[in-house]
């Protein structure tokens, strides 16, 4: 987001894309874990990973997401995977809340 800081329009555009893309990915992540659909879980986590660094989310969660991806690619349920998916859901939901606030702040400051 460093690249967009000096440009509120780009910042809003990036946030809007994140807010549009992330909630469906969280849903797929949770559903695929419940269904033991490892390919879908792998794909959802794979797609969510690059946005961690873009949105400034701690690298711990990126590492965690990569672990979930590894478990998913090995096609088996491993201890702790449910907890990790829950933690990823929480951090992404939190990011969405904070980014929505940021989006509204920028929007209001431009009116």
């Amino acid at each position: 987001m460093q690249r967009t800081k000096s440009n509120p329009e780009l910042m809003m555009e990036m946030i809007a894309l994140y807010l549009e893309q992330t909630p469906p990915l969280i849903s797929i992540m949770k559903q695929s874990l419940m269904d033991k659909d490892w390919n879908a879980l792998y794909a959802a986590v794979h797609k969510i990973i690059p946005s961690f660094s873009i949105m400034g989310i701690s690298t711990d969660f990126e590492t965690m997401a990569k672990k979930v991806q590894e478990y998913a690619s090995s096609q088996k349920h491993a201890d702790g995977i449910t907890d990790m998916v829950l933690q990823l859901e929480n951090i992404c939901t939190q990011a969405c809340i904070e980014l929505e606030e940021e989006f509204n702040t920028i929007k209001n400051s431009r009116i």
Partner: peptide, 16 residues
């Protein structure tokens, strides 16, 4: 890229 966030980041970065 089907990742809209990364696609936008790339576009912004390259344009800059």
């Amino acid at each position: 890229d089907d990742d809209a966030v990364f696609l936008k980041l790339l576009e912004i970065g390259l344009r800059q």
